[in-house]
Nucleic acid binder design. Structure first.
Lengths: 209, 209, 209, 209
DNA sequence: TATGAATGAGCGTTCATTCAT
DNA sequence: CATGAATGAACGCTCATTCAT
């Protein structure tokens, strides 16, 4: 099966280029993510990159997909690390923060598609996002079944809310870390923990009057 | 005092250039925000811009400052439009959303600072942010005094949380509007309202057992 | 004689590559006639083409030779289709036009040699051209012998003139077709017919005074 | 009138760049007519060229217009150099040849617009071509009025024919000069003269029977 | 203070050609 | 013989910045 081996080689090379692109991205940011920088990082000629990717934007797209897939894996791990659905949600929220701290730069990529309206989000990226979403919804449904959270809480809607709120929070605590220390005498992690507590508490059923 | 007058003239010219830059930004987006485009919009020579701003990035920085100041004003208005501190918070949250919808393009500028780590956030921008923050803290303090929110809620910390969560939510509902419609059959505004309700409810004191 | 067979194989492969190149040329034009496109069309690796042709320009040269040979064949047919030498000339002139209409794209190749002065016209191309020339000369000689054209008309020279004038005319009527329609209300074919009539009439002996 | 002076300066610079482009074109041909080559020839930075021309193709367009205008001037001179309309036509035909010998390379530019179907011929070029055409038509009309040429000869149509035939001939005698010498023992100029004689004779009224 | 012509490095992309296998 | 991955120079074009006036 020589064909299969070649395909594998090609995939490995693609991964090597993506690794190089990711290294440049982390080191220099999206604005400096040029083909020439990636080629130099990968120790390849510029033209070679075009044997593996049709255009620069395909590289960027693949980077976002990689990132999203890693996050999905983290969410899976978060769920496996606990039995109680509420604890699973808590783990997921913490995982978001952990992930963001290590992958802050990837948020630029996601917003890349927002800024460039003419650019379609790659299908794979949408799929990965939906997988993440479905995963969280399922946890919320289980929590509701077990009476751990309010019954009038719409699982799908709240999934979006968790996604939005945590995204905002991880950006905030990271970006304003110094300010937090000064104003609050709390670390970013502590503030994020307060946020998680707030969300989890808010989900629980209210005491019957 | 001709010096003072000159200074004023200089400020006016700076504002004129910033107005032009903002017009270009809104019309063409960050990618097309070139010095030549701004100069043409301002009916000035390109070189002239460099008499007022050291470099292009300084213009961008000033644009974000302006944006932040406008948001501060909106928050002031939100507070003035209600007496009840909780309603004031609610208004502030809605104002964030409104502001984002009308100034979405400025978020590109903010991420600009995240990407260019070497670029310091201008002092003025930090000051504006702190003013906003102080304003919200004062509202929360009043709410606590009046017993409208839980007493163990740290006003400063919760101000940061409001800031972070709402930022995340406005981005989400705006950018994923179509997805919300499809998955939830709810409009972005409706989902945002759910978020606001969640936050407001979460602040209230729990019923005594 | 395995050697001879190999040679034949090699020739077949060359023809296959030239067929592919011609297909690309007709479909995409000279600008898109890249080695990679030809290789893909021929279902061969790019490097393989270099086993049969020293460089891209050699492929182009061979294409022009093919084209010229086809034209020669058309001229043969034109002559066979009539007995009267004058009618044979007329047929040849029409054949030039027909050929041009169907092979317009090849004229780009010819001008290729004009532009690249360092590039020698291949010997084979010159030979094909001379064959065409000799053929027309023989027809003109016969016409002269039969008293159908002026006796002071130099057959070789007039062959060149026919060649030059008709080449110019086919280019003109084809490329300026729309202009002809507008200015003259005549189709390209009609104008070309006028040209042919002019040439044929001009060849005939003048009436004796 | 400082504005007028500036405009004149700009025009001079444009002409300088066009001169440089023409020099490159004559020396290296259309394929090598790159922006970098023109910039080097003009002793300017590449970017500077874009202050005067929107894109490379605008430079090419202007070159063709220049060339066509020169030809128009040559035709005017040809007409002024003789009184008899037939001699004027003869002069025009000779002028075409003279012009072609010195401007052979410009034929590539004209065909540039033919090959790149998506490229529109610049309006100015069309205008110049029409001026040339109108000029020749007027000479032919005068010749007809004076009974110097056949009355059934359509002036407009024959103008196209002159244009087409002579274009073809000048290309031929130039390109096949050596062959002419060898086969005919005639120089290109002599063959072209035969062509001109043939055309002029063919225009004259036939002897009444 | 104001100009705007000029710069030149940088961009993404293409493609003829080479060469280790 | 045949491959096809790799090269690297070249392309047209953009734009932040400088500087002589």
């Amino acid at each position: 099966m020589p064909k299969a081996i070649d395909q594998k080689d090609k995939q490995l090379k693609k991964q090597h280029i993506l690794d190089s692109a990711e290294a440049v991205l982390r080191r220099q940011g999206l604005n400096k993510l040029s083909i020439s920088a990636v080629a130099k990082e990968a120790r390849l000629a510029q033209g070679t990159l075009y044997l593996y990717f049709k255009e620069k934007e395909e590289i960027i797209a693949q980077l976002t997909v990689r990132s999203r897939k890693r996050l999905l894996q983290l969410f899976h791990d978060s769920i496996n690390a606990a039995d109680n659905p509420l604890e699973q949600i808590r783990n997921i929220l913490y995982a978001s923060h952990t992930f963001f701290k290590e992958n802050k730069i990837f948020h630029d990529l996601v917003s890349f598609y927002e800024v460039n309206a003419e650019q379609e989000e790659p299908q794979e990226l949408q799929q990965a996002s939906q997988n993440i979403s479905a995963l969280v919804v399922s946890v919320l449904d289980r929590a509701k079944t077990q009476g751990l959270i309010r019954s009038n809480l719409n699982a799908t809607e709240f999934t979006y809310m968790i996604w939005g709120m945590s995204n905002g929070m991880v950006q905030l605590v990271d970006l304003r870390g110094k300010m937090l220390e000064k104003d609050l005498n709390k670390s970013p992690d502590e503030v994020y923990t307060s946020f998680v507590d707030f969300v989890i508490e808010g989900m629980k059923p209210t005491n019957p009057a």
